[in-house]
Simulated scan of single mutants.
Amino acid sequence: MEVKLMEMSKLLVKDLMNGKFELISDYIYQIENYVIKVPKSFVTDYASIPRIFRAIVLPYGKHSGASVVHDYLYSKGCELNIERKKADKIFLEILKEEGVNPILARLMYIAVRCFGKTRYKIK
C-alpha cells in the first residue's frame, strides 16, 4: 500500500544557538488523511542524535523535516492525538520521502521505537 505524502510548505527556522531551532513560519506536511501543521515558534532540536554518533549522522540534514514533524507529534502541544507508534511510522515514511538512505532511515526508526517512549507527550 502506497502512502500519500506531501510537504505543503518549506521548513524555515532560526538557530537559537543552543542546539535548538525555532520555526519562523508554520511547517505543514500532509500524510494520508492527516494534515500536520507544526506551528510557527515551535522549538525543535531536529533529530536527537547522541553526540557519540554525530560523526556518522548530524541532527539535521535530509531528515530535518521528518525530525521536526516527529518532535511535534511527540510534544504536549500537539492536538492531533496521534499515538506514539503511528507518530514513529509517520517519521519513517517522511524519512523515505525525503530521500534518506534506506538503511539510515530504518536505523533512525528503530532508535525512536526503542528510545522514544520517555520523550512522548512529555508533561
Rank of each mutant, 00 (worst) to 15 (best):
L11A: 11
E22Q: 15
V38R: 06
L107Y: 09
G19P: 09
G116Q: 01
G61Q: 03
L104G: 04
I103N: 08
I122S: 10
V100E: 07
L107S: 14
F53T: 05
R106P: 00
K89C: 06
S64P: 02
V13W: 00
Y46F: 15
C114W: 11
R113G: 00
S25M: 13
M108G: 07
I90T: 10
I52A: 13
L23Y: 07
K20N: 14
Y120F: 15
Y46L: 14
I103Y: 13
P39E: 02
M6C: 11
M17Q: 11
F42Y: 05
R106S: 04
F91T: 12
S75G: 07
Y109R: 10
C114V: 14
P39A: 00
I52G: 06
I52C: 09
E93S: 10
K86H: 12
E93V: 08
K14W: 00
L73E: 00
L92I: 08
E97S: 12
V57K: 05
A55V: 12
M6V: 07
A47W: 15
S67C: 07
K89F: 09
L92P: 03
V43R: 02
Y34W: 06
V112R: 04
H70K: 02
Y60H: 11
Y109T: 12
E32H: 05
R84M: 15
K62W: 05
K123N: 14
F115P: 04
Y27V: 12
D88E: 13
Y34H: 04
S41G: 02
G99V: 07
L73W: 01
I49T: 04
Y74W: 02
F21W: 13
R54S: 11
F91A: 06
L80T: 10
H70F: 06
K20E: 15
A105S: 14
K121D: 12
K20M: 15
Y34I: 04
E98A: 15
H70Q: 06
K117W: 15
E32L: 11
P102A: 02
S48W: 08
Y120Q: 02
N81T: 05
